[in-house]
Design a binder for these strands. Structure first.
Lengths: 249, 249
DNA sequence: GCATTATTATTTCCATGAGAATATTCCTGC
DNA sequence: GCAGGAATATTCTCATGGAAATAATAATGC
């Protein structure tokens, strides 16, 4: 038996039988696949180098491999996945040079965003942001590892949205996503206790209309994150088989 | 006759006959389609709203519609194309809010890039950049409309590359591409004579290590571009049938 | 003559099968 | 037992056909 593909579970059997209840516009599925994989990567559930089985995804979402393939294509163009010819698709493993560029870009972008927020955000919007920071701090004490990183990333996105520039927001989102891969690869110790209230401090600086202070706090916050990382060659693939061998030889 | 598709001209007839000279790795084709359409849009050959026939592209590149479809997908995610369900894909028509965001993002990015270039670029690299600006100025006097805009865009990309941050360069490239759509939609008068030597002035400021001056010149240059545009609603679709009608009623 | 409906044609959209390349297992000889 | 290789299985890759939807054209009624 040459081709034994698992039967599509929730896929419509064959015909688009006229009375389709859900009326699943299949283009939404492509979007859903992208966001699903994107957030999975973002919160570290999918580690760098993990192989992506397009058949499995196709089955899970009840669509053909064609649409999965399309979704993977744009994820690749976002540098979240890498496709090796005839080998398959893998979660990307950014190199140290790319990591450096990403950190730098993020620093600059966040600076600009703070400037925009300072000029545009209403007081009530800042209140909402502050509430998010508080919630985050609350979660922090309850040590839920996953929701911690998720919330932490969300703060920066919401902050960017307050800047009122969708292009900026999108750029930052993509950089943050890629940086989560960098952290997964190069992070050394997970000392997430430090910097728990960074976000809240930034908000108060914003409310005080002190741009310099806010940017300075942001710099400190980001430096804190970058400090958990050692960007030296051979560190990135310490999880790979060869690298592990070298540690024991 | 239900399905009359034009015969693929340069496509290999059927089998990947063992002795394929070119050994056309078909993934390169997808890349080629993207860059082709991308530059076509960038230099205004493809105007906003133009319909993209995937059959025609498939035939032209000698591949199936599937790979064309993939390429169009990532172009869509880059906001250069828009896909309307069951209607087709069209060259994107950015709205005025998007245009505003793009202009602003570009200003900020170019500022950052100048900073990076100031810190990193070697003298000889600046020489190369200056040569590019000179060439551009030379072309300018010979009024070749197309190569003028192409060269003009290229300057900013090369400048970004001198910044030594690939992420920044990519972001700027995408913004510039989208802005060419904005210009095509909203540009009023084509007074490209003014600002002919802007680029060269920026380079000299860079060589003089005068960051403030360089940024100021860049601001002026970009303001010049933005000045050619009137971002008011109803201006964007002045080419559409309904808008034309309104002008005569 | 014009609006409205019916018919035809194009084109998008997706599932599927076949081919090619890679990974894995099994087998044989030593 | 194990190295090397053949056979097998898995997975990617892409072209193709058919169904659905929209656009275009023809036809009909008034």
């Amino acid at each position: 038996m040459k081709r034994t593909r698992r039967q599509s579970a929730k896929a419509v059997p064959k015909a688009h039988s006229a009375a389709e209840t859900t009326e699943t516009n299949n283009d939404d599925v492509s979007e859903r696949i992208r966001t699903t994989l994107g957030t999975a990567i973002g919160e570290g559930a999918l580690k760098p180098g993990t192989k992506i089985l397009e058949d499995a995804i196709a089955e899970h979402f009840g669509v053909s491999r064609t649409v999965v393939r399309g979704a993977l294509g744009v994820l690749e163009s976002d540098h979240l996945l890498e496709r090796k010819k005839n080998r398959g698709t893998f979660v990307a493993e950014p190199g140290i040079e790319e990591a450096r560029a990403l950190f730098e870009s993020r620093r600059k972008l966040e600076h600009v965003i703070l400037e925009l927020v300072m000029n545009r955000a209403e007081a009530e919007q800042l209140d909402a942001l502050e509430k998010l920071a508080d919630e985050e701090e609350h979660i922090h004490h309850h040590g839920d590892e996953k929701s911690k990183t998720v919330l932490s990333g969300k703060f920066h996105i919401v902050l960017a949205e307050l800047g009122g520039n969708a292009v900026m927001t999108e750029m930052l989102s993509k950089i943050v996503a890629r940086l989560s891969l960098v952290m997964a690869l190069y992070e050394e110790e997970k000392q997430d206790d430090c910097g728990a209230d960074h976000h809240r401090l930034i908000v108060t600086a914003l409310k005080a209309k002190d741009l310099m202070k806010a940017q300075q706090l942001m710099d400190h916050h980001l430096a804190d994150i970058e400090g958990r990382v050692r960007l030296t060659e051979g560190q990135g693939d310490r999880h790979t088989f060869m690298a592990v061998l070298e540690n024991f030889s």
